[in-house]
Design a protein around this nucleic acid. Structure first.
Lengths: 189, 189
DNA sequence: CGTCACATGTAACTTGTTACATGATTCT
DNA sequence: AGAATCATGTAACAAGTTACATGTGACG
């Protein structure tokens, strides 16, 4: 039956929380919530919606809410079951790739200033994202004070903030190290 | 010329640090060093080696060190230049996917015990990896006390430890939250 | 009347993973 | 003798990204 495709479960989950969403809506919702740990593009969402509808995991209604070419979807009982059975399955820890770290790993072959620049850029990008998440942490309880999903959403937000804070602290440590190495090199001259 | 393929730079970098390595060696080296932030499989390494040789970024010598069917590679000047120019390029922050978090995000649709199990599993897997990295942090300076790359390798190790520690702390926080939710649900009965 | 947001989709390309396929050498 | 390690590669598949392609409705 269902393949190991994970996008489908992300879509199913959004539809379970926000019935009547269109493909466009799903992407907007994910941009504003799961984006920092899970992203989907239109090119992945629309084919998934088609497939899910064919499998009767969701139902689609053409032109539901406005005059626009809009197709709104709802999750079916079968879809909810499929989602829940996936939710219970064990997760295998995936190790992502980190290009910045790869460059630092080979940092000895690069100039110190370039290494510093990479980490400074990284730090500022992460800091910006952390600020966004901290805003989310404040806004979510106001927006959905009674939603049963709230504690779970906040947990994922907290995960992001926690890890980003660690990344920022590491950046500061690494910048100090690099400053020392730069100093040593200067002395040798 | 060179495509935006990042595997090639990983291979070039390893070859710069460990000249005379075979495809098999490269994978072993990466397993023992970059694996927690950068992985390559044989299926990606061998084609990359072929391509790099054709572009004169590396040179290969058949059956160099033993009677085995072994091809040892060395990085060329051109290869080193290509690597260094890549090292200087800006890195764009990539947001990976985290399946565990996706399941927690939809956690309200799942049982509390299943949510707890996911996080406990996650925590123990991360803890195990952190232990490995802490060993690496101890062993690297003993193994390569004078290698100029050492400070950079240690920085990446520190990154892993730092982030894993944050993940562990988040796990503990999340487990507490879940315990509270479980309690509340029990009370309502 | 112009721009932004809404809205959906396809095609081509890139990339990575898994399974398959084979064989030599070293160690116990 | 058998297992583990060394050693290289192909084929098929799965998945994701980017670019392309098109069109409507609301708002100022």
């Amino acid at each position: 039956m269902a393949k190991a495709n994970k996008s489908r479960y992300a879509v199913l989950g959004i539809l379970a929380n926000a019935p009547g969403s269109s493909g466009y809506d799903i992407r907007s919702i994910m941009k504003g919530s799961t984006d920092y740990f899970w992203q989907e593009t239109f090119s992945s969402i629309y084919p998934v919606l088609d497939a899910l509808e064919k499998e009767n995991l969701i139902t689609g209604v053409q032109g539901a809410s406005s005059g626009r070419n809009r197709k709104a979807y709802n999750i079916t009982k079968k879809g909810l079951k499929a989602l829940q059975s996936w939710l219970m399955e064990d997760v295998e820890l995936e190790q992502g790739r980190n290009e910045m770290l790869l460059k630092i790993f080979f940092g000895e072959l690069n100039s110190i200033s370039s290494n510093i620049k990479h980490i400074e850029t990284y730090k500022s990008q992460i800091s910006a994202r952390k600020l966004v998440l901290e805003q989310t942490r404040l806004n979510l309880p106001k927006k959905y004070p009674k939603d049963a999903g709230l504690p779970f959403w906040l947990m994922t937000v907290e995960f992001g903030i926690c890890r980003m804070q660690a990344s920022i602290e590491w950046s500061e440590y690494a910048l100090e190290k690099l400053a020392k190495i730069k100093k040593q090199k200067g002395v040798k001259k």
